[in-house]
């Protein structure tokens, strides 16, 4: 491996900043404040004590914002209805690559509750998951998950949060939840609950900031914000959906 110049690099940066910058530890304490601001505290409180009526307002706002982004948001009463809606989508859509229809989904309590395996049994659609058994051969499992993800025409995920103002779903990367599920299949379906909807990015960042130091739901090694299907305007600024990622995206919001 070639030599790393971290120390001399940082030192040159420090020299370039000039003699008057002050001691590093003083500046460090100032630029990384320990306590969160009062504004963030208030935001967090607002999120935690949101009334059902306010949640409905946020859902309506999400639907308004999602429209122009070609993102379909459908409220459903319960997990069973979400499963029925997904089954209808599966029936309606044709695979983009190859003939066979199959699905890939996260291993996640909310998605487990949909029982898609039974709901799709009459259509004879295989439903794969991205669950990993940490005791078994990891390489082999990853390989199989990859093949299943590539072969699937629809990927089903949950999410950590959803931001109404930008029509964005936020997904931190957790175990058993493949990143490619929301990326490689032609259709991405996210299932969320209404209490996961936040007002705007400022609220989201207050929540993320609050969580960042707790190991179990900190920021993890990867996180993605998705606001609608893949799109491009690189040829004469003409908007085309489905450049590389999903051509279509659906969010089902469970009210109960």
């Amino acid at each position: 491996m070639i030599q790393n110049h971290r120390a001399s690099f940082i030192n040159r940066v420090r020299q370039s900043l000039g003699p008057d910058i002050g001691p590093a530890d003083v500046r460090r304490a100032r630029i990384f404040p320990e306590t969160s601001e009062k504004v963030s505290q208030n935001l967090l409180q607002a999120v935690q004590s949101r009334a059902p009526k306010e949640r409905e307002t946020l859902l309506a706002m999400l639907m308004d914002q999602a429209g122009p982004l070609h993102l379909h948001v459908t409220p459903v009463a319960d997990p069973a209805e979400a499963a029925q809606q997904i089954a209808a989508l599966v029936r309606q859509k044709n695979p983009e690559w190859g003939e066979k229809k199959s699905l890939i989904r996260w291993s996640h309590p909310l998605l487990d509750a949909l029982d898609l395996e039974s709901v799709l049994a009459d259509q004879h659609i295989p439903v794969h998951t991205t669950a990993m058994d940490s005791q078994a051969d990891l390489q082999g499992q990853r390989q199989l998950i990859r093949e299943n993800t590539v072969a699937s025409f629809m990927g089903i995920t949950a999410a950590d949060y959803c931001v109404a103002d930008t029509a964005t779903i936020v997904m931190k990367t957790h175990p058993h939840q493949g990143r490619a599920v929301s990326l490689v299949p032609s259709v991405h379906v996210a299932v969320i609950t209404i209490d996961q909807i936040l007002t705007n990015l400022t609220e989201l960042y207050a929540v993320l900031d609050d969580e960042k130091n707790t190991p179990e739901n900190g920021l993890t090694h990867h996180m993605v914000f998705i606001s609608g299907p893949s799109k491009t305007a690189d040829i004469e600024l003409t908007m085309v959906h489905g450049a590389h990622g999903p051509k279509e995206m659906h969010i089902f919001v469970i009210r109960a």
């Binding site: 990867h222 993605v224 606001s227 893949s230």
Partner: peptide, 11 residues
Amino acid sequence: KLGGYVSYVGG
């Protein structure tokens, strides 16, 4: 308002 895909990569 926000780009379509924003990824945070930490390792």
